[in-house]
């Protein structure tokens, strides 16, 4: 079972399947046997290439689509059956925000607030929070994509949710907007809101998420903390610099290391114990001026796991636990 951190499961999905029948085309298996648990608190990144099933999973959780089989729970209540009992605790933004284009931003939010008995003062408060107060009385059809996105986030926050589900919240935002949203998401996580952040902007995810799950072809194929994923995705290569590089390479190769010469350094492949490199060289009278582990980033791990990078493993479980290796993740 894939788990996030915390004490109580905010989201639980067990064996969920969803297939879309298509006219004169083979059915599309959007979600297959999906297992996922997200515990309360923090920011949970939900990653995957286009068509991997992220949005379908979110739609299943929010009752927009019905699973063919499997159990889904929000705050311990079965979805979609008990969704009305918990929807007041969930804020969501799925893909593009959906508002009446001829209404103003304020009118759109006011209608949603009115339906839920949320005071109007909350609308003004939240418009200020997403910095739309100045344009609140303009029609939404005149908004930029980024402004619509901020209005969508405002709608998601109206209810002061305990769980916030954001599907690609950075869509259409410029660099400054993305930074603001990132800060907002971080603050939300810190304030006790559990955030499920679905995104393909991996650098953003890496900066704000505590834990991530990676989906591919309808299944979670890897999950864990960001640091665990980075560690698991790391190649183990190190880069060294020393005065006599050519001799160093010969010595290391003699001791079984895979060494590649670079411009002014050597790259040593799959080093389990860097101290062994130091010891071998010093025994040969060679001394290092630099030894640096070659780090990886979430994007590289993601591409490697989802098989979109050359040389990627056939199965993501090679890297980190996934749906097929539930015992590895339990208790993380």
């Amino acid at each position: 079972m894939i788990q996030g951190k915390g004490t109580m499961n905010v989201i639980e999905i067990q064996g969920a399947n969803k297939t879309y029948k298509r006219w004169r085309k083979p059915p599309e298996h959007a979600v297959r046997g999906l297992n996922l648990e997200v515990q309360a608190g923090g920011v949970f990144g939900f990653l995957g290439p286009n068509g991997s099933g992220k949005t379908t999973t979110i739609r299943l959780l929010l009752g927009l689509a019905k699973p063919d089989s499997g159990n889904l729970k929000l705050f311990g209540r079965s979805v979609p059956h008990d969704l009305p009992a918990v929807i007041g605790r969930v804020g969501s933004l799925v893909e593009t925000p959906l508002f009446f284009p001829t209404f103003t931003g304020r009118q759109n939010l006011t209608l949603l607030a009115q339906a839920s008995g949320i005071p109007r003062s909350r609308v003004d408060e939240i418009l200020g929070l997403v910095e739309l107060s100045g344009r609140a009385d303009d029609r939404v059809k005149g908004y930029s994509l980024g402004m619509k996105q901020r209005l969508g986030i405002a709608a998601a926050l109206l209810k002061r949710p305990e769980l916030l589900i954001l599907d690609e919240p950075g869509n259409g935002l410029d660099a400054a907007g993305i930074r603001e949203i990132r800060q907002l998401i971080s603050d939300l996580g810190a304030s006790g809101v559990t955030v499920l952040l679905s995104s393909h902007q991996l650098s953003e995810v890496q900066q704000v998420c505590d834990r991530v799950a990676i989906m591919s072809r309808g299944q979670v194929i890897a999950a864990g903390s960001v640091s665990e994923l980075l560690a698991a995705g790391s190649s183990g290569d190190v880069r060294i610099r020393l005065h006599d590089g050519e001799r160093g390479r010969e010595v290391l190769q003699h001791h079984g290391f895979t060494v590649t010469s670079e411009e002014d350094s050597l790259r040593i492949g799959r080093v389990d114990d860097p101290s062994r490199v130091t010891r071998v060289l010093s025994e040969a009278g060679l001394y290092l001026s630099e030894l640096t582990p070659i780090s990886t980033d979430l994007e590289s791990v993601f591409l490697q796991i989802t098989g979109t990078e050359p040389g990627a493993p056939h199965h993501a479980a090679d890297l980190v636990s996934g749906a097929d290796a539930p015992e590895k993740e339990a208790g993380r």
Binding site: R89, E125, I126, L129, L157, K159, R160, P161, E162, Q183, L184, D187, L188, A190, S191, G192, V193
Partner: peptide
Amino acid sequence: MTTIGRHVAPA
């Protein structure tokens, strides 16, 4: 808690 956090903290 930050200013934003106060605005968005669960109800």
